[in-house]
Design a protein around this nucleic acid. Structure first.
Lengths: 338, 338
DNA sequence: TTGAAAGCGCTAACAC
DNA sequence: GTGTTAGCGCTTTCAA
């Protein structure tokens, strides 16, 4: 017994008066070991409550059975579902998950990468910050043959595997849906324009306007940072245009609830005066009045998929795999005019 | 350079033609090493992009700079905030966080404990499942001197440290608040009665009824499991009592939104016909109509506190510390009659 | 001021 | 079928 009370191979060997190697082999089910010995060993191991010391193993193999995950916000249903998906798949393969929060800070992200590197994780799944424009820290991971998979937020290079949602198509479908409801003045409430996701969703929106033969009006496009207050003000600005929009597409949770607040503050009805649809992963969207129409990323599935790909890389696959996960449209009251 | 491209002390020693021990000491700032040597070593380490191998270190010390966390549901704002709080404090002290999800299953919880043990984490923070009644797996951790702190859901023994919310007082205050609004038939919508938290909150509720000189009516107490459907049905049952309650206290998010749904389904007004207040950590409670009054656990603070206590134990503190975190009452429209 | 060597727990190559 | 030994990267006596 060592200090911590965990029995080691040595302890078992000593107790049984045989060599450490024999114990090791017996426990691994090595066929060279006689049945009698094996049983004796297994028995003793159980009695002594032996568990293999992963660390010793890892010192040899160079890595721990650990997968590192870096997300920009931990406290959201979106990222916690991704994490949960990752964790489930990882657990099946005997890996544990270490998660770190970059708080949308490039500097923290670099630190996180460094910490995970130091911990000798077997691979990393990351969702980059909004600020991240230099990907050197990820490339140096690749140099060390540490596999990396990007999730949710893509990085602009095909060198890495990634799992993302089809933003363009999702926004396209949402816009068409509103047009079909009879909306003609469809506005879009966006986050910061530096976000790739914003660019893509706006792209889908514009494509759809074209295809539905609706004009593209710059005054119906509002950008805002993601604080609830700024978002509400931005929504108010949209609603006070000379020609008031008759529909709003909100690009995330915060924007969606901000838009709802603004519409109510203007004493407008929904969907009568203004139809509303948003991208969201908050289940409570269906509990509001009116229930909010949403487009959901399948965040859990994104996590699972990312983890499966990472495991492939850990097991030798070299070529990057880029996967796009479809979104799910949930039309509820806030956008249904019929 | 080893296979993985990470330089080791040996590499530095070889390059400089000095011993590994000297390199180790130089890097530790051991004063026995001459300034010249130290600088040479530090310089070389930087050039070779050396990072210390934690695993080797851990093999000696018997533990990794890792804190394990077990939660019953990962995908909730409540637990993800707790995790975030833990993570932040842990990071400050150089620890990373491994989180596992027991999915409210006792069996999984046992597995999680075992996995964390195998990984040789330095300590564990756990929120036990609803099912957990036997705590042997935690006691055996204690036997191995692996510190454990319970968070949010307490276990019925003073042997361990814990950080919990003051459930009794929170429910007491909520009930009194409703009474002050003029409510006389205050009902309570509870989760499973085996949950300690449910028992405590109900206790606070009953105490408050006494102190406010209101009758305690068993038909105003509803228990339900936590699926949205069952919860909604339970809320409907309350609302269809012969003497309809004029207020409902919902003991968590799910129950709160279910109650809201039921009230609307009965075409009752809020807070006019029925006032509603719930325990919740969902920020969107303020975006509903009417905005929902809530009692918030300070989940992030609970996480931070739990982690601080765990670190104390890791650093030698033996005596358990039991901390109660106050709740915060946010009165919004759904319970304000004045 | 520096070096040599032991040892943390385990596996695998090599003996016998 | 089983034992011996080297070695993973690091710290830490013990020597020099």
């Amino acid at each position: 017994m060592t200090t911590k009370g965990a029995a080691s191979l040595k302890d078992i060997a000593a107790k049984l008066g045989i060599s450490i190697a024999t114990v090791s082999r017996a426990l691994q089910g090595n066929p060279a070991i006689s049945k009698a010995t094996r049983e004796k060993v297994v028995q003793a191991a159980r009695e002594m409550n032996y568990t293999k010391n992963f660390i010793a193993d890892s010192l040899r193999s160079g890595q721990l059975p650990l997968i590192g995950v870096i997300v920009p916000h931990a406290v959201t249903l979106f990222y916690s579902s991704i994490l949960d998906g990752i964790e489930q798949v990882a657990a099946q393969e005997g890996y544990a998950v270490i998660s770190m929060n970059s708080h949308e800070s490039y500097e923290e992200e670099r630190c996180n990468v460094q910490s995970l590197r130091n911990l000798h994780v077997a691979g990393i799944i990351a969702s980059v910050t909004q600020e991240t424009e230099d990907f050197g820290h990820f490339y140096s991971l690749a140099d060390e043959r540490l596999p990396v998979v990007f999730v949710a937020r893509d990085i602009p290079t095909p060198d890495f595997s990634s799992v993302t949602a089809d933003s363009v198509e999702a926004a396209y479908k949402a816009t068409c849906h509103l047009a079909r409801q009879g909306c003609r003045r469809i506005a879009i409430l966006c986050g910061p324009s530096r976000m790739k996701m914003v660019v893509e969703r706006k792209h889908g929106y514009i494509e759809a306007l074209h295809d539905c033969r609706l004009p593209v009006r710059p005054d119906y496009v509002a950008y805002t940072d993601l604080s609830p207050d700024a978002a509400t003000r931005a929504a108010m600005r949209l609603l006070t245009r000379k020609e008031r929009p008759d529909a709003i597409i909100a690009l995330n949770d915060t924007l969606l609830f901000a838009a709802m607040k603004a519409i109510k503050a203007c004493y407008l009805t929904m969907p009568g005066d203004v139809a509303l649809i948003g991208f969201s992963d908050v289940e409570y969207a269906e509990c509001t009045s009116p229930a909010l129409s949403t487009i959901e990323d399948q965040s859990r599935l994104m996590g699972e998929t990312a983890c499966r790909i990472l495991l492939k890389h850990i097991n030798g696959q070299a070529k990057p795999i880029r996967k796009v996960i479809p979104t799910i449209q949930k039309i509820r009251e806030s956008s249904r005019k019929a």
